[in-house]
Write a protein that binds this DNA or RNA. Structure first.
Lengths: 101, 101
DNA sequence: TAGGGATTTAGGTAAATGCCTAAATTTGAT
DNA sequence: ATCAAATTTAGGCATTTACCTAAATCCCTA
């Protein structure tokens, strides 16, 4: 894990929010959008963009950045790309800060 | 603690390095510079700037930013400003990431 | 109170980041 | 093969960040 890239990828309020939203999608996204939600997939790009009130392209690259930093896991299914949190990597980051930083 | 400001303040390789150096000054700074080192004070601006191979003004504002984010503690003594880590805040950050992020 | 060392503040430029719209691509369904 | 929906890629502009040098300030000591 590249500590600096991970840190950069969460040094933005929107990206930080996305991480929070994905922690508990039912608490943050309209239920109808989660009709066929599955924890193994996560939430799709456009739903996240709508929640963020930001353009889809912007959010698309944010998500891509975060998955490049290994904080999110992307799954393409049909024409949708779903993103979910990578809990292991997040815990690993906390651990790294705790003992190595 | 403002999570975002803290994260921003460590989203830079040099500032990340400084945090590492201050964790164990004797391992990273020339011993003669630490002649009157005391853990309660830390290391002064110009020694840190020299170690970073960066201009003093740049490092001065980096350090100030980090202490504004509460990651460092500054102590002015005579004409020197010493900086040391704020271990509590760093642990708090790790904790915050672990359970709230 | 003048001089000098350490630091901070100001001011500037280049690079990176934040976001957008438009265009291109992917993929399922007629 | 074609259309439409979702996403990604490209390109662009505004703001922030990363540094620097020069000037100002702080604080000692003569």
């Amino acid at each position: 894990m590249k500590m600096l890239d991970v840190l950069k990828s969460i040094s933005n309020q929107t990206r930080l929010n996305i991480l929070t939203w994905l922690k508990d999608p039912f608490a943050y996204f309209p239920n109808e959008e989660l009709a066929d939600y599955s924890p193994s997939l996560g939430v799709c790009v456009s739903d996240i963009a709508k929640k963020a009130k930001m353009s889809i392209p912007t959010v698309s690259v944010y998500l891509k950045t975060m998955s490049a930093a290994d904080l999110l896991v992307a799954t393409r299914k049909d024409q949708w790309t779903y993103y979910k949190r990578n809990e292991e990597a997040i815990q690993e980051l906390a651990q790294l800060i705790k003992e190595k930083l």
